[in-house]
Structures are given as C-alpha cells and as structure tokens.
Design a protein around this nucleic acid. Structure first.
Lengths: 346, 346
DNA sequence: CGGCGTAACTTTACCGATTGAGTTTCGGCT
DNA sequence: AGCCGAAACTCAATCGGTAAAGTTACGCCG
C-alpha cells in the first residue's frame, strides 16, 4: 500500500476529497471553490479549479440528487399502439428538437415507451417517486386525459404538447390546429375545390378534435361540401376510408390526411381505383417528410416543423422549472405545394 | 409541530426510517427485511413489508447509486445527420424492442441524439463519469469505429449492434447481413433476373460493407451482372443513383435499396422516367414498413424485425452485466414478396 | 448450571457533495 | 496595546440506504 499518499485517487472515480487532499484543503473548501461561493480566496479557488481540471473531476450525480438537488432530467413517455410505432416521422423529429434544447442546458432526457395510457401514468409515478425527473412532457393529449389529471394531482411540472390547459405546475405548448386547418383549407379553396374529404387520426386526441371542429366551421363558413372520416392513423383504415369516400356517386375532389403514412396509403388506394392524382383528386398530407418530397406525384404537405415544436416544448419546460412566465411563440405551419394538389377537373 | 410522532412522514417522500419508526425497529432492520437478507424474524419481516407497502415506500435511486449500486440504466446515443433523422422506421422499432426487455427487468433507457461520432463518444464519457449507466448500446458501427475503440479502453460494458468484435466487456449482436443478402439475391435470382443494381446506404457502416461484399460474391458466384452505387441513405442521392443506373444503355432489371425511404425515392424516379414497376424494373427494399405495404405497387421488402433485434441487443446487454455467456440467437430475416418484384420483361 | 452459539436486532461508518456552525488568523481602528 | 470584524478555512451533520461490527437474550449442551 504505497500509493495511498498525496492525493492519488484509488480508482477511476475522482471525488472532491481527492482534490482536497492534493490541494491541501478540506472537501468543504473544494465545494465552495467549485460552486463559485464565497469562503475561499481567489488564489486557492484558482488552484483548486486547476487541480480539479487536471484530475478530470466530474460531480457525482447521485450524491447531488441525494442532497436534494435537481436530477436535471426530463421525462417523456411515448405511447403508441404497436402497429403504428415507428411509422410516423413526427416523433423522432420532435425528439431531436427537445434534445437540442435540453442538452444545451445540461439536461438529459428519460425516454420510455408504453402501449397504453395507464402504463404511461404508472411510469410517471415511478419517475416521480424516484425523483428521477424534474418534469414530464406529455404528447398527444386526449380529451379529458387521465395522464393530465394525474399529473395535476401530483403537482409535478408538466408540459402538455398540443394541450390547452394551464396551471401552477403545468404549461401547454399550444399547437394552433385551427389556424393550421385554415391554411390547409385555404390552399384547397384557392385551387377551386368545392368537395373536400378529411381522413383523420385518432379522434380521442384533443388536437385532432380541434382540427375537425375547425374543418367543420370552415365548410359551413364557405358553403363547401365537406366530410370527415376517422382512420386512427392506421394505414389500412386510411385505405378503407379513401375507398368509401371515392365510391360515393359524387365524391370529393380533394382529400386531407392527418399523417403522411395515411396520405401515402390513400394515394395507393386512389391509384388502385384508377383515380389520377391530382387529375381526379388532390391529396394533401398533414405532416411533411422526405417521403412526401420523393413520391410520385410529390405530395403537397403541411409543414409544421416538428423539431421546432420539440424545442418549444423543452424551452417551455425549462421556463416552468425556472418559474419564468411561459412565452407564447407559436409554431407556424405552412402548406408546401407540390404536385399532388391542383385545381379540380371539371 | 404536532404531527412529528409515530411515523408520519414529513412530505411526499417516504424513507426507510419512516418505516422503521412505524414498525418500532431501526432502519437497518428495515433494510434487511426489504432486501430479503437474514437477520430479521419472519414475523418482523412480514410486518415491515406490510408497512412499507402501506406507506407506498419506494427505494431512493440516488441513495442506492451513491452506495455503489448499479443505476439500472442503459445508454443509447442515436447519431444521424439532421436530414435523415426520423425518416427511418428502423430506429423506433428497434427502440421499442430494447425497451420491452429492459423495462421488464427494471432497467431504464438513457437516450441522447447526436449529429456526429465525436459528440457521441463525449456523451458516453459523460455518462460513465457520472455513473449514470451500466452499459452502452452502439448502433451502426463503422469500419474501425472510434466509439468502439473508446469504449474498449474505458472498459464499460457495451453491445455493438451489427458489429463483429467481442471482448471482455463487449459483445456484438451480429446481424448476418451476408445471409440476408443471400435471401434477397435468391429472391431476384429465382424470378430470373440477370442484371441487378444495388443502391446502398452509407458505406462507412460496417454492416453495409458486409452487404456489399456479399453482393459482390454472389454476382461472381452466379455470373450475374451486378453493380453497386452509394446513396448514403439520402433520398435525393437514391434518386440520382436510380437515374444514373437506368440511363445506361443496358440497365438493370432489378434494384435493391438499402432502406425503404430510398426505395420509395427510387420508385418515384422510375415512374418519372417512364419505367413501370415491376414491368420494366423490379424493386426491393431492405427494410419493411407500413408504407411498403400500402404503396402502389406494394413494395417487396426484406423484413428483418427491428424489434426483435432491439430485444436481442437488450438481452445481450443484460447477460453481459450478469456475466452470463452471450447467447447466439441470430435475428432471421425473410423477403416479403409483394407487387414490386416480378420476372424480368424479356 | 455455566458457558457458548446464534437469531434478532441495534450501532455506526460510509458513499460524495453541500452547508451551517465553529475556529483561526490577520488587518485595522481607537 | 487591545479589541473587533471579517476573510479563509475546518468541522460535522445531512441526504437515504447498505453492511460490517457490536449487543442482547435465549436455548441447548456437556
């Protein structure tokens, strides 16, 4: 046991005591120096900082958390049915946006996947009990969402992406789906369409409901023939819905799909049925992706910048944690016109 | 201060001391009881367990980690260029598979996104220094991958998905890309194709190299005309490559694409150029997805079950941590024949 | 019947960092 | 010269859980 002398750390892990020994002070002094608190002279502070750097010291996360400091971590549960998981571009892009903001501020992300809302709430409870996260992001809020109710009770900071509640420990990043629908609707209107079909995602989602409400309003407002069909984001259901709509004696001249996967499915069905796009029917996808750009015909899409939404959700969370007032930036969306939309035939 | 008596916990967080107070023992006894260790009578143990349950006690994660216990967490960094992120189904499905195994065993997943390998290694270093993870999963290993080198040095348990190294703290989940290519090749061969084009992903990826090597072997073996073009998983590059191949006076009668996004891009180009699928050219995608099933024509694809691969990677990691020998299960892949492949015209 | 083994607990130290309460030293002011 | 105050540290407790080292008390055996 020769080496146990002037500050040679025993293993890979360097602690503030190791630094203290080398610097000839106590661990308390090292703590003060590192955290920029008064109580050590500038010379000593500089020396400690230098040594800490030399020894590659990194704070022990567990020790800090134990002392009641924030874990610097945000939780996110992705709840999607097995069959749909991974098929949507939205999520990964959203995630990338969240990460970019969080990692910049030294936060990490806890991610879990679940298949139903009950297990999502169970995961939240776990995280909270463990003190593993500072706050939780909730995606795809439902009408009367049980997760939101649970989080409100628990009082843990939460950001509802696409929600509309607000509270003490709760912010919503509002996605103005009504406004988005306006943009989509106006695009088709400007082309001269008078008969529009809207094939929707899961109607228990609050934002889908808002889209439908807006769609209905605009049809009434403009006197246009409009019809809504639920397809729950499932490609096969989108195909069935498309078939149903197009087999009507006086079917729509334009179709709106709530996701790019459904839009692609719909286009395939149209092609099978012998309808030309955009000759016979125009198609518009509510979500842009690389696939939309390369399909034939290329797909007109609503581009709402999922990454920006992710950044906004993360920023909202950090503001919530810092007790700063929420900013109201609003993610804008625009229609990217491509080949799949054109004026109607007749 | 009335309530500070017989075991009423001060705030939301219940500790073993709270339980001890209620049970009339010390925290040491509670620890023994909870961890199933000898040193407490069965009656006492039962009582403690009941009280712990009643009080909704949950172990404090930070305290355990501080005492040197495993954080029960696995790290995974997704490194993809911005433009490609989210476009591939593979990742999310893989992730779902990983999660299903981990959560079953009480492990959680640390996920980060990065844009280059250097920052991925930096994230690994961070996690290790923090003691935040027990092990790390590495995706898309490159030829002479710097991440693998770094992890080998650090000695942290790692599982390389699709790698071929093995070591003390390192396992690889081997994806038998050569065998997969055999399946793909045989499918086209059986249909009678004599001229095959292969549009590949990023050729710095080890598994892409293996596919190319196998492809070359099989063309030589069978005397078939085969050509390989790199498109780096980028849709536009896939389109360019397709155009290049098809503008040759004697172009291929079948095309293999390394991802479904590239396959869709290629199909679009073929359609633009006036080639019928599968009439003039057959198309096969190396990766199946809902989109493949609903495109028109539906897309023949290699289905290699990304979720199973994820489960296997997670299982491999847990075995590594338990010092059990790695199992050699091998994810199987098969070609799902759909409309996009057929015998060549002439 | 004295001693010994052991079951059933309690005590205490510890993990790494933070923090309020001491302690020492030194300069300045009267 | 003597006292005060503050700067610069040290000391010790703390977070929640674990584990090694005591401490009882009881039953059994020679």
């Amino acid at each position: 046991m020769v080496a146990r002398e002037a500050g040679i750390p025993r293993s890979g892990r360097v602690t503030i005591s190791d630094i203290a020994r080398r610097a000839g002070v106590t661990s308390g002094a090292v703590s003060l120096a590192i955290n920029g608190k008064p109580g050590v002279s500038d010379i000593t502070r500089a020396r400690i900082l230098r040594i800490a750097d030399e020894m590659r010291w990194r704070p022990n996360h567990a020790a800090k958390t134990l002392r009641g400091q924030s874990p610097h971590s945000i939780g996110l549960v992705l709840t999607r049915p097995e069959e749909v998981v991974g098929e949507e571009v939205f999520f990964t892009k959203f995630l990338a946006g969240v990460q970019s903001v969080l990692s910049q501020r030294g936060y990490s992300l806890q991610l879990q996947m679940a298949t139903d809302l009950a297990s999502e709430t169970a995961i939240h409870a776990d995280w909270i009990a463990d003190g593993r996260v500072d706050g939780i992001l909730v995606l795809d809020p439902r009408v009367d969402d049980p997760r939101v109710t649970a989080l409100l009770e628990l009082g843990l900071p939460a950001v509802i992406v696409g929600g509309d509640q607000d509270g003490a420990a709760l912010t919503s990043v509002r996605t103005d789906d009504g406004q988005f629908m306006r943009v989509v609707f106006d695009h088709l209107l400007a082309l001269g369409h008078q008969r529009i079909g809207y094939i929707t995602g899961d109607q228990s989602f609050a934002h889908i409901r808002r889209r439908i409400a807006a769609f209905t309003d605009y049809t009434l407002e403009s006197g246009i023939w409009g019809i809504t069909l639920a397809a729950d984001f499932v490609p096969q259901q989108a195909k069935d819905a498309t078939q149903k709509l197009m087999s009507s004696p006086k079917g729509p001249t334009a179709l709106i799909f709530d996701s790019e996967v459904m839009a692609i499915a719909g286009m395939a069905t149209l092609s099978e049925l012998g309808f030309a796009v955009p000759g016979d029917v125009s198609v518009l996808s509510w979500e842009d992706s690389a696939t939309c750009r390369v399909l034939h015909p290329t797909l007109t899409a609503l581009n709402r910048d999922a990454a920006a939404l992710g950044r906004q959700a993360a920023t909202g969370m950090l503001r919530l944690l810092d007790r700063e007032p929420a900013d109201e930036p609003a993610v804008v969306a625009s229609v990217v016109p491509r080949e799949s939309t054109a004026p109607p035939a007749s």
